[in-house]
Write a protein that binds this DNA or RNA. Structure first.
Lengths: 252, 252
DNA sequence: CCTGTTCTTGCACGTTTCTGCATGTATCGT
DNA sequence: ACGATACATGCAGAAACGTGCAAGAACAGG
């Protein structure tokens, strides 16, 4: 197998499975892990993948094809998404954030639900195409590759022209002191703008996010209506949030 | 074995196996590896293959896994898309219409091309996520389910704020008298708005669209710079278009 | 037919690139 | 805090590479 061929193969794997585990691929191709790591390092330096401990991930989560994605979406996200979908009333207007959990919400929505969805994520918008009764309003702007959503001044401005009953907010960190956080400043600003346009904001917080914090604050606890999680209600972090006055919706 | 004959053989191998290993071919043909390398070097300089350490690969990896791509986009659309992708210059700004042909253009774009793409299609935007160097600007608005693009007043307004070198326009009908047509009035208006924002407009017209007309006129012939089609140049309809002053780019 | 030229081909040489292993370090999960 | 795992780095052998050179074939002109 040629070196260049091997690299192509890695890109294929990345697209089809949505991730690469260096150890597994090395065993699969009968080559050393060092070689795989070297390839991944080079690819990452060219922006073709995102290097993580143990392997690599696609630069953007949206590249994994449908089937692979579904299997990647863990049980926790599905539970959270299901509860979140239940908050969407027929005839209601919901703002849907980007990210894999929000995508799971789309899949959890009844196919013939009559509602309006506002989103700044092309992935979410595309997924809603097979919900015939759902009206979709897309917020435009510069596409931010990292999280696959529209961000920046144009997107925030577009958000000013809409209103909704509900905002389903995705974050990367949920922490009692740090609050709701995400990894990018632009992204955080956009989420704030969206939250300001909805009567209620609920946080999609599958259990792996509970107790962690990222770099940028999105919102303080007072600004949100509730939090949806599959973490057990008697979990210390969850109890702490409850004492802060956060309504916690259990998903299990 | 003649030198020219040998080169043809190499091209055949490239097409059938999807790769060439210099060492193997040399042993197979009982010639020195040096000769094979020289051939590959020459072929690469002519753009007939991609030289890599140890051998060579096809210029486009899509040639190898032909079967997989085939099911996604028919041959005609792939050819048209390939020519259209060639119009996108590094560093350039292109407005990309929605639809399956435009999606094929995304797949035909070099993965590491450095350009800006403006689109009102969430599908196109999502597909561009795995082009790390491509800057994507999404035009928002009410999502029109039929064609999966943003339409309406908000979308047209958003379009007023952008400019581009090139607009790749998809239509459903290309007819000498009727002009360029599509099946929906809103969609047609949006396409007109986009065409007004680009210096050049090229029509993506795979052969099944030539000679047909839909309900709503998009643009007259004067407004477009050219038409890309896989229909034969001596086709009566194509010749008629040529006499109308339309530049026809052949894709085959 | 002979000769000189040009092109091709294979070989030799030094250089570059790749790969696996060993080492020590950093990071993760418990 | 600890062991386990993943990591970066340096190193050495192997493979691939480019280049110069010479032998040979093809060809043109005398």
């Amino acid at each position: 197998m040629l070196a260049a061929e091997r690299r192509d193969h890695l890109l294929d794997l990345l697209a089809s499975r949505g991730k690469i585990v260096a150890k597994d691929v090395a065993a699969e191709l009968r080559i050393s892990e060092d070689t795989v790591r070297r390839d991944l390092r080079d690819m990452a330096s060219e922006g073709l993948c995102q290097r993580v401990y143990g392997g690599a991930l696609p630069v953007s989560p949206a590249v994994a094809d449908y089937g692979a994605r579904q299997s990647v979406a863990p049980e926790g996200k599905r539970k959270v998404a299901s509860v979140a979908a239940g908050l969407v009333r027929p005839g209601g207007v919901v703002i849907l954030d980007g990210g894999t959990t929000a995508l799971a919400v789309v899949h959890a929505l009844p196919r013939d639900l009559d509602c309006t969805v506002i989103t700044h994520s092309p992935t979410i918008a595309a997924a809603l195409l097979d919900h015939p009764r759902a009206e979709v309003f897309m917020l435009g702007g510069r596409l931010f590759k990292h999280s696959a959503v529209a961000c920046g001044a144009a997107a925030v401005e577009a958000a000013q022209n809409v209103s909704a009953d509900l905002f389903l907010l995705g974050v990367t960190g949920v922490h009692p002191e740090a609050g709701l956080t995400t990894g990018d400043a632009e992204d955080a600003a956009m989420k704030r703008a969206l939250a300001a346009r909805a009567a209620d904001t609920y946080v999609l917080a599958s259990s792996e996010k509970i107790g962690t914090a990222s770099r940028f604050r999105v919102l303080p606890w007072e600004e949100i209506s509730g939090l949806i999680t599959d973490r057990a209600p008697h979990d210390p972090v969850i109890e702490q949030l409850t004492t802060l006055g956060v309504e916690v919706l259990a998903a299990d």
